[in-house]
Design a protein around this nucleic acid. Structure first.
Lengths: 207, 207
DNA sequence: TATATATTTAATAGAGTTATTAATTGAATG
DNA sequence: CATTCAATTAATAACTCTATTAAATATATA
């Protein structure tokens, strides 16, 4: 409603669609609802994006890439020790998931229910991490050889980090409801887990 | 089709519905499809369960309870040390998630998208864990006081265990596709992570 | 201003969904 | 065997959703 002059209709549709898709997923979101919330005719959604699939993919690919690029944005950590670097990675990843807390579920559900999506993004993703991985991998190996860290693969470290960070936000709505936490208590748990994830992982690396 | 004599139609509908709901979630599953796969008329699904919601809730509640009861089925661990007990819990939980690998996603999506469900199950769930928690909690505290384990709450331990175990199966389909793992390689990763989760958690508990 | 182009809307076809109803078939029992 | 009740089906009402089309309106351009 009357956003028209502030920003383009196309943009308004994109933003509203993103919000609703993140909230309800692809299947439960209708172009009719998007139009209603934007305050425009339903046909306009199809005028700009032709199909609901198109609209979804536009948003999804953009978010998905953003998500992964943020994860692997590890510049300016040169001077840190491996463990400090790792601490920083865990915390940045945590913060990034926290500020996009509905995205992991969307990625997981849409991929497991419409797997064709994967092929589109496969090659785009395979490119990103390689350089960074090699660098970190070398450092990790050096620490292991020096006996300062137990033998472990970088892949395991990444899986652990990602698992802990995303699960917190996947489980929080359910667990918080079951054990009746209010908003402040939930934020407290989130803050506490942010520290715990670092402690847990770093502690576990001791030989 | 022609399952009719081997088991009741009602049962066949339940089982087929369960399979399809687990695969595609509530929204993407239609009673028409369930009937088609069972090999019966679509009205029959409604004859036995009246509404799609009813059918789903019947299945969902049963699975949900089963899931949680399995998790907290910790009898016959009396003679073990705390760490051995913990190892056993992590591994049992892992095995249970592995053999119900599509259930966590269903629980998470249906709860975050149709939260009314939660209230139905809230009190049923609050009852279960208390006894077990108190026992384990006491043992954990004893270990901490004795200086054999770093200070940590049982809640944190449980969250970590659940997070790691369910995330593996949530992420595997995506990650496995992106880095192109075949079925055997995936099983290998799963086996490896089963050990890693135990190592990781037990290691991290050292003071 | 006249004309072309882009944006927006109303209307609707066509497909699919849930749920109900009435009719049909099957099984069981007196 | 006839009757009763349960199981099953065919038909369909009432929706909702996506996508398209043609008409209306706004904007830009010459």
């Amino acid at each position: 409603m009357d956003i028209k002059n502030e920003q383009s209709m196309e943009q308004a549709i994109l933003e509203t669609a993103e919000r609703i898709f993140l909230e309800k997923g692809f299947a439960l979101t209708s172009t009719t609802e998007i139009a209603r919330e934007v305050g425009c005719n339903q046909a306009l959604v199809h005028y700009y994006f032709r199909t609901k699939d198109n609209l979804f993919n536009t948003i999804f690919e953009q978010k998905f890439k953003m998500f992964f690029e943020l994860v692997f944005n590890l510049e300016k950590l040169e001077e840190l020790s491996f463990l400090d670097k790792l601490k920083h990675i865990i915390e940045s990843h945590f913060d990034m998931v926290r500020s996009n807390s509905k995205l992991p579920l969307l990625i997981i559900t849409e991929f497991s229910r419409r797997p064709e999506q994967l092929n589109i993004l496969k090659e785009k993703l395979q490119a990103i991490p390689e350089r960074l991985f090699e660098k970190l991998n070398a450092e990790l190996d050096a620490e292991i050889v020096a006996g300062r860290i137990r033998p472990i693969s970088l892949m395991d470290l990444i899986m652990t980090t990602v698992s802990l960070n995303i699960s917190l936000f996947l489980l929080m709505p359910i667990a918080g409801e079951i054990i009746s936490l209010n908003e402040i208590q939930r934020q407290f748990v989130v803050e506490h887990r942010r520290e715990e994830h670092v402690t847990l992982i770093l502690n576990s690396l001791r030989p």
